[in-house]
Each structure stands twice: as C-alpha cells, then as structure tokens.
Design a protein around this nucleic acid. Structure first.
Length: 674
DNA sequence: AGCACGCCGACT
DNA sequence: GTCGGCGTGCTC
C-alpha cells in the first residue's frame, strides 16, 4: 500500500493494527453528497474487524469528521490514495447485503438515470433491523412442482412462452391480458414455472391491493416459497423478508415498486403488471421506473420478462416493435368472446335519459338503460368518476385537441400570476416561446379554451337516479377490494375499482372528455388504461356485459376501447411520440436549478450531438423582469444517445456541484412532468 | 454540509 | 511582524 499509515487519534486508548491480508477496504459512503463524490473511498480494516469486514457488509466509517454508514465494496492490498487512510470504525453486521449482483444492478440504474450510486443503493437495501438477521431463514426448500398452465393456452405462443421460461431461455414478452382475465393467477403460474426449474421470480405490481391478489395466487401454488415485499411493511418485518430473499430462502418475490431491486437469486422470470401506472415510478432520486429496472435485470440475468396489462403503454409498444420483446396476445376471436360490449356516447349525440333523476345526474339514456338492465339481472354496476382537481391548461377551442407549441410541441399554458392588467398570451411551458397566433395542428382553428379537469358526478346524484339500489364508493378514502355478485352501484375513482364476483354487469365511464383533455403527454394513454382496467372487470358481451363510455366515438382512444385493441392504440401513440419528439421515441432530460447553474451547465456540458435544448423556462414565482429563482431546462436527444445524455449530465453536475450541493436536479424521461 | 488552508488589511 | 477576514477546495 502506498505508504498509508494509520492516523493516531488523540485519546485513543488502543493502538490499531491493519489486517494482515487485504487491509484496504473500498467503501461506498451512504451520505447525500454532491455528485463529484459519487465514488468509493478507501479505509483501513483493523485486524479485530478482519473477519467481519467482508465485501457487501455494512460499515461505519469517519467521513469529513463524522461517523457515517457505508458499504464495503471490496478489499484490496493497496490504495491509490496519497493521504492518510482512516479506519473502518465498526462493522455493524457481517451480513453481505450489497452483493456483487446488487451492486452491478445499482450501478447500471445510476448510470441510466445520470444519478448517484449511493442513492440507488439506498432504494435497493431496506434499513437494517438487527433482530431480523437472527430470524430470517437461510435454507431454500426443494423446488416446487411445475404448475398447470392451461390458462395461458388462450394466448398465441402462451404455452411456448412458458416452455421457454421453464427451459431457462430468456423469453421476453409484452402481454395483453384478456378482458376478465385472472391475471394474478397467470403471473403466479409463470413465477411457479420458473421456481419449478429452480430459478427465482419477481413480480412487481402498482399497489397494495394488486399485491394481495398476486400474493394469494402465488401462495396457492408455492406456499411459503413466495414472499411479499412492500415499503409499507413494519421495518423489522420488511428487513426479515428481504433477508430471506437475499439468503436464497425465498425464491419468488411479489411486491410493489420498492421490490424492483429485490435480490432474488438466479432470476429466471420478472414481471411488471400495468406498467402505465404512475406508481411504478419511484418518487425518489434518481426516479427509477419498474419497467426500466426489470428490463435491465432480465437482460443482465438472462431471465424471462413479462410487461403486462389490460392496456399497453407506448414504452411497451417500443419493446415489442423493436423486436426486443415478443407479443403475448390472444387471437381476435378470443378477445371478442371475452370483451364486454362497449358503447361510446359523445357530447353531441348524448340523449339524456327520460327519467328526471337520471337527467339530473346527466346520465345518457344508453348508460341508464345498461345500468338498469345489469341491476335487474342481479349484477353490480361499476361507475368510474374521475378525481376532483383542476389543471389550468389550454386546448383547441373547437376540436379540443391539446394546444401544443409549434416549435417544440410542449404543452401551451397561460403564464401564472395574470391577475389584473392585459391578459398575457399563451406560452410553451417547455421552451417558453410565446404563442400569439395559435393555430390548431389538428383542425386549424385559432381559438383556445381553458380546460378544467375532474368535476365528476357524485354518488348522491346517482343514488337519486337509482332509488332503492345500494350505492357504495371506493376511492381515496376507502378502497374496496371486492364486491359480491349483487345489484349495487359501485362508484369509484380510477384505479380504485373493486373486483366483482362474477364480473360487473355494466360499467359507466363518466367524463371521458375531461380525462382525455388533460394537458399531460400521456393523457390519452392513461385514460385508455383506466378505461381498460375498469372495463376488464365487466362480464363478456355474451353474458350481457356492457360498457358505456362518455366520450366521442371518433377519438382514437375511444375506438381502441370499443374494438378492444390496446396494441393498435399503443402503436399509434408511439408513432405520435416519435413525431413530436417525446419519450420513449427520444430521451428527454429535465434539469432544474438556479439560472446561474443552468447557464454554467450549458457552457460546460458536453452534450450529445443530437441534443436539442429547450428553454430554460422560469419555475415558480416570476418577478417583473420575467426572471425566477429556479429554472427548468429540457434537453432531448435521439434514443441511441440516451446513455451519453445521462453521463454528460452526471459529469456536468460534478463540475458545477463542487461548491454547492444539489444545485441542479436532473430527471430523465420525466413522463409525469411532460 | 463543515473544516482546513491561504492570501490581503488593521493592529500591537 | 501577526491576528484574522472569509474565498476556495476537499472530504479516504
């Protein structure tokens, strides 16, 4: 080692000696720090900690004078550090939690998002709980028997997919679940197939209710072999289960987004369900997405992968169209046999019901009749009502297509703080360009209109329209898991729909127009996903199942629902994103920071050739000169240069961040923001 | 974030 | 000469 001698601390009672072999510990310190410190530091292992200080274990070290947590990455004979090494002060546990696979995965994720390794590791390893280390099991049981997989026979190549999975080939698929599909059972069968071949499996779902369903389905096939991981678990229990996975005792993991990093041994199968749900986006730096992380993991591990749902995202469409994944879809005749009958009711052709109470609830007669028929047949009826809320945004005054910037296709909005004085012209919220002469790209109209989102019908109004029928609600306050096969109106906000025993007799999807007109990039995709997720809970048309959606039948998302063709819409959506320069066709970074920091970044950053710079636009309060304390810059590049973009932004932060920590915030493909 | 090193003004 | 201002840079 390069002349590194231990520093003698004053007051130290014992003289410390470095371990005889590989005394240098390479340590990842776990402190929120500027990007230029996103690298390991070397410490000396005292001989009394020699046995415990194994690669992957937690350590306590002195960093900038303070005792901090860290992970021992590796042990070496020498160091490149010129100064005096500090000691590893403590090894809280010899449990090697940061395994080489986990470290490699965390590195890959950090690189992809231009983020810091320590941030990813913090998401991937739950907080330690000493008691759990004694309790968690160490030994895996024998592999379970291969399960029956007849449920997959309805899908083209379904059986061969499972055969490939069983044979350990890395089959990857975008799966469109049939309406009414018992998807937890299908995913459980795939996981159990991997387990029966002695390999691990990981299924990640959006929320706790889905987790419960998938866990139950897996437990039926796998018993104790399956473990549920969720961030909401009590710390001790969470750590105990996580350790059981780390030690290989539990081969099959189901969980919510935090489980995307679960250290499953010999991963043979990974799945993300309903990847369009925002809950799959981890809301902490560097904001990894379940689908991204699982595709990465499946790739590295040579594992099979399912990106599944009733709907399909543009990202999933890209996986399929690029050939990286196959399609796992049913034949059209199967789809038609399973789907409910869908009717679209636009604003213009709305015939309000004759019944005065139904009129008051603004129910169209078609919806009213469908609901009454279903209730009469003894079935529950689902009513989906968008959440309350308000988003100030602009749409075409005539065709109501979202108003987009002619330069960069960013969303147009009215600048904030416009009380009094002359109304300010609309401006692009990305590049800041004012739009004085808007012309709709869709219909050519020059008129703009402000749009509001989420004024929904209420349960009481419906209760009056259907007197003597039980009305139950499921939403933000209380989410129902299931409802019995009895006549009832189940009023839900999107995503909170309970599963009905035997399926709903009908579903009414209200306020489709406001949902579709929201300013977000993914408004149409998300709306269609919410519709498919609700409509999939309805009985097939041959059993009387009906869906009435309140939106113009001429709109593409509405057509996709009526024809039950999620793949068709996702493909259109992907093509449109490509045309407008949005993810996933291109990669977009949003960089927030002070005007000085943004300027310094633009001066120094070595951005890829294809980089297109939009803005910066002010964020938050704007003074009279149009300046603000923080700005947002959008950088977009060709997909092939996504890696280069991430790394150049990472490097640019490092140069700049030497002075002040966290001066710039970088987010890659920030879909929720666009 | 804290903490050390370093290069110019007011003082004994 | 030398005490100390806080600008600049580093953190094993």
């Amino acid at each position: 080692m390069a002349g590194a001698q231990p520093r003698k601390r004053k007051g130290a009672t014992e003289e410390r000696t470095a371990a005889a072999h590989r005394p240098v510990a390479r340590v990842l310190v776990d402190v929120p720090l500027p990007v230029h410190l996103d690298r390991p530091f070397d410490y000396l292992v005292p001989d009394r900690l020699d046995a415990d200080a194994v690669p992957g274990c937690r350590v306590r070290v002195r960093f900038r004078g303070k005792l901090v947590d860290g992970y021992l990455l590796e042990r070496n004979e020498t160091t490149d550090f010129q100064g005096t090494l500090s000691w590893v002060e403590r090894v809280p546990s010899a449990e090697p939690v940061l395994t080489p696979e986990l470290l490699e995965m965390a590195r890959a994720v950090a690189t992809r998002y231009g983020g810091m390794l320590a941030d990813v590791v913090r998401l991937a390893i739950p907080p330690r709980h000493a008691g759990a280390e004694k309790k968690a099991p160490r030994e895996p049981g024998p592999p379970p028997a291969r399960p029956g997989t007849d449920g997959w026979a309805r899908y083209q190549h379904g059986q061969s997919f499972l055969d490939a999975l069983h044979a350990g080939r890395s089959a990857r698929a975008v799966w469109q679940a049939l309406p009414g599909e018992d998807w937890p059972a299908r995913l459980a069968e795939a996981a159990a197939t991997a387990a029966s071949a002695g390999r691990g499996a990981l299924i990640v779902v959006p929320d706790h209710r889905d987790l419960q369903r998938v866990h139950d389905a897996c437990a039926g096939l796998l018993g104790d072999e399956v473990v549920a991981l969720a961030a909401e678990l009590a710390p001790a229990e969470r750590y105990r289960r996580w350790l059981a996975v780390l030690r290989g005792a539990s081969r099959v993991v189901v969980g919510t987004r935090a489980a995307m990093f679960a250290p499953v041994h010999d991963l043979g199968f990974a799945a993300v369900w309903d990847d369009g749900d925002d809950l799959h986006s981890y809301p902490q730096v560097p904001y990894p997405h379940t689908r991204d992380v699982l595709t990465q993991r499946a790739h590295v591990a040579g594992a099979a992968l399912i990106v599944g749902g009733f709907a399909r995202t543009a990202e999933a469409a890209l996986l399929a169209e690029s050939g990286w994944a196959h399609e796992l879809v049913a034949h059209r005749t199967e789809v038609r046999a399973a789907a409910p009958r869908v009717t679209a009711i636009g604003e213009d052709d709305t015939q309000l019901a004759r019944d005065p109470a139904a009129r008051a609830a603004r129910l169209p007669s078609v919806g009213f009749e469908a609901a009454r028929a279903a209730l009469g047949a003894g079935a529950p009826v689902l009513v989906q009502v968008p959440r309350r809320g308000y988003v100030p945004a602009l749409a075409c005054g005539d065709c109501r297509e979202r108003a987009r910037c002619r330069r960069c296709a960013g969303p147009l909005a009215l600048p904030g703080g416009s009380e009094g004085g002359a109304p300010k012209p609309a401006a692009c919220s990305w590049c800041g360009a004012a739009e004085a002469a808007f012309k709709c790209g869709n219909c050519g109209s020059r008129r703009l209109r402000a749009i509001a989102v989420g004024a929904g019908r209420t349960a009481e109004e419906l209760g009056r329209a259907f007197s003597n029928v039980t009305v139950r609600t499921s939403g933000a306050g209380e989410v129902l898991a299931t409802v019995p096969a009895k006549p009832a109106l189940i009023v839900c906000t999107p995503g909170a729909e309970p599963v009905a025993e035997g399926g709903y007799g009908a579903a009414l999807l209200l306020d489709g127009r406001t949902l579709l007109a929201r300013p977000e990039l993914r408004a149409a995709e998300t709306t269609l996903r919410l519709w498919f997720d609700a409509a999939a809970l309805v009985r097939p048309a041959r059993d009387g199942g009906r869906v009435v959606v309140m939106a113009e039948s001429s709109l593409q998302p509405v057509q996709a629902l009526v024809r039950w063709d999620p793949a068709w819409f996702a493909s259109l959506e992907l093509a449109e994103r490509a045309e407008l320069g949005f993810p996933p066709a291109r990669r977009v970074a949003a960089v927030d920071g002070t005007p000085e920091a943004i300027e310094a970044l633009l001066d120094s950053a070595d951005l890829p050739d294809s980089a297109e710079i939009l803005g910066p636009v002010p964020l938050g309060e704007v003074d009279e000169d149009g300046n603000s304390e923080r700005e947002r810059l959008i950088v977009r590049v060709d997909r092939a240069e996504g890696r280069a973009l991430a790394s150049s932004l990472h490097a640019a932060q490092a140069i700049r961040a030497a002075r002040k920590a966290a001066e710039l915030q970088v987010r890659l493909d920030p879909l929720e923001m666009l």
